[in-house]
């Protein structure tokens, strides 16, 4: 995802990310609506949400440059907050 790469090269990663995000959204819905509600289900939904957050931040916003690496810990903090929320309030 370098800013100096060609448009065609970068679009493959973007398209793959887009399809993954769609897949995880569908998985979220399927897990919640079709499977029974269990703690494993909640964990699975939250995991899917975290993956989606990370993908939007890291790829859609193109933060993979070395000068922007500080944003990855920020994402991790956000992820940790969500995990805490999930464990504390949705069990």
């Amino acid at each position: 995802m370098s800013g100096t790469s060609t448009e065609a090269g970068g679009t493959k990663a973007l398209t793959a990310t887009w399809l993954t995000l769609l897949l995880f959204s569908l998985a979220n819905y399927y897990l919640a609506e079709v499977l029974l509600s269990t703690e494993v289900l909640v964990a699975a939904i939250l995991t899917a949400v975290l993956v989606k957050l990370f993908l939007v931040l890291a790829v859609f916003m193109e933060l993979g440059h070395r000068g922007r690496a500080w944003l990855f810990p920020t994402t991790s903090v956000l992820a940790a907050c969500l995990i805490v929320l999930g464990v504390l309030f949705f069990r």
């Binding site: 979220n28 819905y29 919640a32 909640v42 939904i45 949400v49």
Partner: peptide, 10 residues
Amino acid sequence: ILLFPLLYLL
């Protein structure tokens, strides 16, 4: 992405 599970799924 956060609102979707918080309000609708969990």
